[in-house]
Simulated scan of single mutants.
Amino acid sequence: MLEYPSINPVLLSLGPLQVRWYGLMYVIGFTAAYLLVMHQAKKFRWDRMFLHVDNLNLALILGVVLGGRLGYVLFYNPAYYWAHPTEIPAIWTGGMSFHGGFLGAFLAGFLYCRRTGLDFWKAADLYIVTVPVGLFFGRLGNFINGELYGRITNAPWAMIFPQGGPLPRHPSQLYEALLEGLILFLILWTTKAKPWQPARSSGWPHGVMLALFLGLYGCFRFLVEFVREPDPQIGLIGSIFSMGQVLCLLMLCAGILLWLGRKTATVEQFNR
């Protein structure tokens, strides 16, 4: 068994103001995504993106926050928030859903691109390859907070989490950081140029990177959920799957359908 490296969740205190590791991870993730998007736009010579990246980033961040909170309310604890609706905006108390945040960002990006005439599928491919970076740092933040820990195990790398009782558990946050973060990023980043190649070079239509992310994230998260502690207010659905696994199965199906749909599409013009 490994010793859990207890780290103060509060990085810095300035009177009533607190800077927490978890919030810092969000800032690092959003900043890294911004820089990587700019790098790709320059590399692929998509000059029009430079005119929209700041406003589009703001729309996506709002979509992530609003979607993540509403996703948690609807997917994970609807009964509680139905009885306590005034607590729905209280995101500082915890409770965010990745799947909800993804849907919120997807909708915000789609509406922004539709309004400005920006190619949505092209922008989606540009952004989606940066998402695993934010996931990596977000899961590290979960680990520092000692939350979203795994199920009880006798594995030699198990840890006793302060909020998880006296028995050793899987450090599932680190599993997710590795699979959903590092490995997924490497896969997407090494294949990201494919949709930007012209048709004569066997390029893929834009949108397939988004489909690849949906499928791979759905698979990775589905597997990790087998060793992650289910949400206590829900438990296992049918004594088999967690809510996260149900949502990941839907995500995987959406990825397959999108992949098939975009692979049959005509390769788009690259100066649109």
Rank of each mutant, 00 (worst) to 15 (best):
Y112V: 09
I91L: 14
E176M: 08
P156I: 00
P89S: 11
L135N: 09
A108C: 07
M96H: 00
F102M: 14
L111M: 13
W121H: 15
G141W: 06
F102N: 04
L148A: 03
L148W: 03
G164M: 03
E176C: 10
P171Y: 04
F106V: 15
M159V: 02
V133K: 04
L118T: 13
Y127T: 12
N154K: 13
G104Y: 02
P85W: 08
T116S: 12
Y81P: 01
H84D: 05
L126Q: 10
R151I: 10
W157A: 07
P89F: 05
A90H: 15
F143H: 08
H170T: 06
H84P: 04
V131A: 10
N145T: 02
G109P: 06
Y112K: 11
I91M: 14
D125P: 07
H84T: 13
L167Q: 11
T130M: 08
G100Q: 00
I160S: 04
F136K: 09
F161D: 02
A105M: 11
H84Y: 12
Y149S: 00
F137S: 09
T153Q: 01
A90Q: 15
A108E: 03
G104E: 00
A83N: 13
E147A: 01
F136A: 11
D119A: 14
V129P: 06
W82P: 00
A158W: 05
G165V: 01
L182Y: 07
F161L: 07
F110H: 15
L182H: 08
Y149L: 01
G117S: 08
N154D: 15
I128Y: 07
L186G: 12
D125K: 14
T153C: 07
S172E: 09
Y80A: 03
M96D: 04
Q173M: 07
H99Y: 02
L126C: 13
C113H: 05
F136C: 14
L174K: 11
R139T: 09
L103R: 08
I144R: 13
M159S: 05
L118S: 12
D125G: 06
P156N: 10
F120Q: 14
F110N: 12
L135D: 01
T130R: 01
A158P: 02
C113T: 08
A123Y: 02
Y80D: 03
T130Y: 02
W121L: 15
T130C: 01
R115E: 09
D119Y: 11
P166K: 10
L107G: 06
G104R: 11
T116N: 11
V133C: 00
D125H: 12
R114C: 07
G100D: 01
M96S: 06
C113S: 10
F137Y: 05
G94A: 08
M159W: 07
L107A: 14
L174H: 10
I152S: 08
E180K: 01
G181P: 07
I160T: 13
A177T: 08
L186A: 15
G117W: 03
V129I: 15
I91R: 10
A177N: 05
G101F: 00
M159N: 04
W92P: 02
L148V: 12
L186D: 11
L179I: 06
G94Q: 13
G95L: 10
I144D: 05
G100S: 00
Y112H: 05
L126V: 15
E147L: 01
P171S: 10
Y112D: 04
P132D: 09
W157G: 04
E87P: 05
N154A: 15
L184V: 12
L186H: 14
L107K: 10
C113F: 00
F110C: 10
L182D: 06
